[in-house]
Design a protein around this nucleic acid. Structure first.
Length: 507
DNA sequence: AAAAAAC
């Protein structure tokens, strides 16, 4: 570590040298030449689909996961962002469905046999595209189901018969209620971004869905981040699981250069514009912690002549999808996003990610910067922080087990502006454009899932040096209240989770 | 603290 420190203090912007890993870093991403997909006994149809896409050798997570899933085992899989987790679970699932003929005498010739859950609609869409490509030469059919779009075509697709459904939780339950989907034959469950799916906000819906599945089933969980607490919760959904870790959980991708710039709250937006100009960035995602902040930053960049667009949960689904697509097509240089875009999204060769705000959850930092440096490519992650963010910064350092160099943004001259009156927030609310969101559902939705009482609480003020303590991450909202206190009791949050699970009303 | 996820 000490050599890393000194190296960085000489070159404040130099890359964060990764900790010596058990395996050479690149080996965690690079396909393994000694193994071929054909070695796993995958059907010729699947192999043909892989050949279509030019895939011959599996990545390490794929090499480890595929045989284990084929054996019928439950899996808890951790691998860094951009290392091929999707294929790691999709390929063996497809193989299992092909190998075990449908034994159901159900009137539907194609009962749903595998369910893949994701935390965002765009990710569901992306995973579905992948799965469909892998199924292309097989008789299996896959469809995607998520909210914010017309339900009728989804119902039609489900009626026509599909073996694999990729879904976000809310709309899936909607289909359950409307009886357009039957999960009684669904013996395969995958939770993508599993730690997020087990977050307090998702857990009730998740529990309802799991209750609809056969007890005899195979369950798989994948993510780049698993806190110890979430691991325990995850285990309660798994039966004698095999843990697959091709790198330490919570590790950032090794090939991403991470930079931390201290900035002033008032000049943040200028700082982002400055960085984009200075580095001549033509393709960058900028993360904001709030929907309002994302919209405001996008407007600011546009005013600066930078082609930008915001995506967040108050945009219509059409706007979200159009924004993402425009960004992928290069029509937009900057995609300003909330954490709706933090996880899973695979944007080819994205060179850079900027955190305009440090994320509240350290885990999200790993996922956000994981949008760059995928599939072995190199990437840049630039984060802005203010003096109020020191605690968040330390949380991130503890989790990824790296200490950042706190750099200054030199040569940066913020624009002068008329001083604002009143709180920034209330002003922004007044200024928030109507059309920015609204299909009219927004207010309704935000009030509908009430904030849980568990999210209340405060962090401790004083912190010990991070390197003296083992990593004790936040479990989303579950124990954020407790984690601040020294020797946080783990009993209490667990009891709360149990109470919540037990207290979920049946629909 | 916030965001996400059904209508």
């Amino acid at each position: 570590m000490s050599d890393i420190q000194s190296e960085q203090s000489q070159h404040p912007e130099s890359r964060i040298t990764p900790e010596p890993a058990a395996v050479a870093p690149v080996a965690l991403v690079e396909p393994i030449a000694a193994i071929r997909f054909a070695d796993f006994g995958l059907s010729p149809e699947i192999l043909r689909a892989l050949t279509d896409q030019g895939y011959v050798h599996p990545t390490p997570i794929q090499a480890e996961a595929i045989p284990v899933v084929l054996q019928g085992r439950d899996v808890m899989g951790a691998a860094q962002t951009g290392t091929g987790k999707t294929a790691g679970f999709s390929l063996p699932i497809i193989q299992l469905l092909l190998a075990h003929a449908n034994s159901s005498a159900s009137p539907a010739r194609h009962p749903v046999r595998a369910l893949i859950l994701t935390p965002t609609r765009e990710l569901a869409d992306q995973v579905a595209e992948n799965v469909k490509a892998y199924c292309r030469h097989t008789p299996l059919r896959a469809t995607v189901v998520f909210g914010g779009v017309d339900i009728a075509p989804q119902s039609a697709a489900l009626r026509s018969g599909v073996e694999i459904v990729i879904a976000t939780p809310g709309r899936l339950l909607d289909h359950v209620q409307q009886k357009t989907i039957n999960l009684s034959q669904t013996h395969l469950l995958v939770m993508d971004e599993a730690d997020r799916m087990l977050d307090m906000g998702f857990l009730p819906d998740l529990q309802r869905i799991v209750n609809l599945l056969p007890k005899e089933r195979q369950s798989l969980m994948f993510s780049a981040t698993f806190s110890p607490e979430i691991k325990k919760l995850a285990a309660s959904f798994l039966k004698n699981p095999v843990t697959i870790e091709v790198a330490r959980s919570n590790a950032t991708a090794d090939n991403v250069t991470q930079t931390m710039y201290k900035v002033n709250d008032q000049t943040k937006l200028d700082a982002v514009a400055y960085i984009i100009r200075e580095r001549n960035l033509k393709q960058v995602i900028v993360f904001s912690n709030t929907k309002i902040g994302a919209s405001r930053l996008a407007r600011h960049l546009e005013a600066e002549g930078i082609k930008a667009s915001a995506i967040h949960g108050d945009k219509t689904q059409n706007e979200r999808m159009a924004g993402l697509e425009a960004f992928k097509q290069g029509e937009i240089e900057v995609l300003v996003a909330t954490d709706v875009a933090a996880r899973g999204l695979d944007i080819a060769e994205l060179p850079c990610v900027i955190n305009c705000d440090l994320p509240y959850n350290a885990e999200d930092y790993v996922h956000r910067i994981g949008r760059t440096g995928r599939a072995g490519a190199s990437g840049d992650a630039i984060s802005l922080y203010t003096d109020k963010d020191e605690r968040l910064l330390v949380d991130i350092e503890k989790m990824i087990k790296h200490k950042f160099v706190r750099a200054e943004l030199t040569g940066f001259v913020p624009k002068l502006r008329a001083p604002e009156r009143g709180s920034e927030r209330s002003q922004e609310r007044e200024r928030a454009p109507r059309g920015d969101s609204s299909n009219g559902r927004t207010a309704e939705r935000s009030s509908q899932h009430t904030r849980s009482a568990y999210s209340a609480g405060s962090r401790k003020e004083k912190i010990d040096p991070w390197f003296l303590k083992p990593y004790e991450p936040s479990v989303s909202a579950v124990d954020s209240a407790q984690q601040g206190q020294a020797n946080a009791t783990t009993k209490q949050p667990k009891a709360k989770v149990a109470a919540l699970l037990g207290g979920i009303p049946k629909r």
